[in-house]
Write a protein that binds this DNA or RNA. Sequence first.
DNA 1: TAAATCCCTATTGACTCTATAGAGTATATC
DNA 2: GATATACTCTATAGAGTCAATAGGGATTTA
Lengths: 145, 145
Amino acid sequence: MVLSQKARYALRALIVLAEKNDRDPVMIADIAAEADVPRKFLEQILLELKKRGIVRSTRGRQGGYQLGKPAKEITFADIIRVTDGPLALSPCVSVTAYQKCEDCFDESICPIRKVLLAARDATASVLESRTLAAAAAQIKKSRAI
Amino acid sequence: MVLSQKARYALRALIVLAEKNDRDPVMIADIAAEADVPRKFLEQILLELKKRGIVRSTRGRQGGYQLGKPAKEITFADIIRVTDGPLALSPCVSVTAYQKCEDCFDESICPIRKVLLAARDATASVLESRTLAAAAAQIKKSRAI
DNA sequence: TAAATCCCTATTGACTCTATAGAGTATATC
DNA sequence: GATATACTCTATAGAGTCAATAGGGATTTA
């Protein structure tokens, strides 16, 4: 039920990137320091985010990470799906990774499924509407005060 | 993120009880058979549900389990909170088990928290509105066809 | 060619989840 | 009141997951 540490780290790191306005690549070490994330763990996380197109990287000297697309197109749902898998409380109500329950007679009748489906939709509609851009903007606003 | 097996078992077992209209106590063994849950595991689950007042038990011969209150007063949220803990994606947005994040500077500013709070509210409002009575009614209706 | 930086895989320790086991306690019935 | 029945409680084991660390490989710039 609870968000993994990995997800929290990913969100913090990406918000740091979003605040940079995507000029030059930012080194892992810098992101790690600003987001307060263990450096080697962050490496793994960024690698996964890269595979899913959420960030892109530049290798070698002067290298680092940048967002893979505009911050306002990256939602919390996108990020959490990478680190923690589907948002659904059961694979049988997942939109991105549907899987039938092993011991389910008839899915169309299952009263549990019906509820979990409604819960998934509610969660998804929140997490899909919140973007990195909004989160970064909020931080900047708080800093300005 | 995903519901534990324990939660699924608890929901199935309680829906079985809700269908019985709460006449006489139902033995663990019978509940286990009807809900398709390992018997000894179910014992533990029912014990926890009992501690939280969701079921009540009668010991000795003719003993068994019954719902602890009317089926329409037992919500999915109540049950899941027993088996899986708080609904919130982070302790810092939990209503039933609030806890500050260790590495959080200022909670009122945290842009992640804001989103997780909205997600929690969305999930809770669904799970708190769905009752065992509704689930049992739905099952009976499907069986009638 | 050297330094900087990301890339990739393996490993470890702690913890949790699922399930089973077995002895203990209460109660109805004969 | 003896006995069978059924819930109560605690321990434990195996598998799996999570968080973190480690270290060498590959690539690019200067």
